[in-house]
Design a protein around this nucleic acid. Structure first.
Lengths: 217, 217
DNA sequence: TTGCCACTACCACTTTTGTGGTATATTGTA
DNA sequence: TACAATATACCACAAAAGTGGTAGTGGCAA
């Protein structure tokens, strides 16, 4: 049984895909979300899907951002991006990010199901149109430029999550150290690692991203 | 025409009250929310109601917290608290907060509508049972103790909102100053005022509360 | 049993925040 | 016009956060 979660800001699409996928006994739609932040909150507490179907064009947090963070925080989840159009820019950006598939919404239903089963088994899968772009890109750019810095420091540890919550709760480094009986130095180290992992510059960024990614309450 | 917004985590209740209120031509239900944070996001952008019907017992942010912050940030909104039980503790706490009414959910429908119309006209309105508690409290406690510090520094100004957003976006004081062409001193002053108004101790608190209250994106 | 990883801890130094004042323009509006 | 609210600016000192390192320990898994 392959568990799937859908994220797309068009409710109609969500319902359509769900009823479609439910026709296949191997597939099970765990949850649907119209908003990246809601999805991240679910990911902190709820059951993780095997495959995430993710719309690229979304209001609020973009699909690209969602993808990048999901892959970092929950690497066991296979992400398939869905898009109405195909943009070389995104394809480039996303493939290096570690997504498992990239389909056009115009893809027919059997191919979608096939793709889901493929990526659940660790393969990569995408629409033929996109495959074209990939092959073309591969030829021309050779081994490609890495563009902007691709940092992925893996998911947060238990301790780091705890820190993040305490920081958001207005505890200072010293107070955290006293509260959980560790040295101030250690807390500062955790703070540093958090900032690096979440790719932010200061406490404000830590709390903001913590919220967006549903890591704090 | 009196515009009303409903916040209660029980959807059934929301629908019930809405259909009830719609029977009165003077009343108009603008919006319903099951969650305080969603409500606050709406308040930042959407139309402000004349009257807010607010459940006290809610998961997540409690009704009390919602009430306190609404009254501070949007003082033109008249808040009526709804509760299943009646607790002296809450009554005390809330009346000093500046709410306009306090009804039991067992209140019958005509009284609810009457109460809404009353508070929309600046009066205070509550269930007889609660009135009893109030009178009793007034007798015994005399002019009452103020309990914990009741600070209300009014709503945030445009400039302060702008600051809050920039802080959440990881700009430092110096960067903000440069960006919007004012002195660092000024930015620090705004920061101070923000912390006082939102009743938080540091940048983390600022960003967290900014999120909860829907003041930043 | 070896190697990775999370967690811990330390240091020195810089930058940014936070505290607790005061004070003057500017602006909208009663 | 005069008042209130807002936005601006300044100061000095204290506290906390951020930078850029290094490094030991314990546990779990290949």
């Amino acid at each position: 049984m392959i568990n799937v979660v859908l994220v797309d800001d068009h409710k109609v699409f969500l319902q359509g895909v769900e009823s479609l996928l439910s026709s296949d006994p191997e597939l099970n739609v765990l949850k649907k979300f119209t908003d990246g932040t809601d999805f991240f909150r679910y990911m902190k507490e709820g059951e993780h899907p095997d495959v995430l179907l993710l719309d690229i064009e979304m209001k609020g947090i973009s699909g690209v951002e969602v993808a990048e963070n999901v892959i970092q925080l929950y690497p066991e989840v296979h992400v398939i991006m869905l898009s109405t159009y195909f943009s070389e820019e995104f394809v480039d950006k996303l493939v290096n990010t570690g997504i498992s598939g990239y389909l056009l919404k115009s893809t027919d239903f059997e191919d979608l199901i096939k793709a889901i089963k493929n990526v659940a088994n660790g393969k990569f899968s995408c629409s033929p149109e996109i495959m074209d772009i990939l092959v073309k890109g591969y030829k021309s750019a050779g081994s490609a430029d890495k563009g902007d810095s691709e940092e992925d420091d893996g998911p947060l540890t238990e301790r780091e999550l705890e820190m993040l919550q305490l920081i958001a709760d207005e505890y200072t480094t010293k107070e955290i150290a006293e509260k959980i009986y560790i040295s101030e130095h250690t807390v500062k180290t955790h703070r540093k690692n958090l900032m690096q992992k979440l790719d932010v510059k200061n406490t404000a960024g830590l709390v903001k991203k913590g919220y967006i990614l549903g890591l704090i309450e």
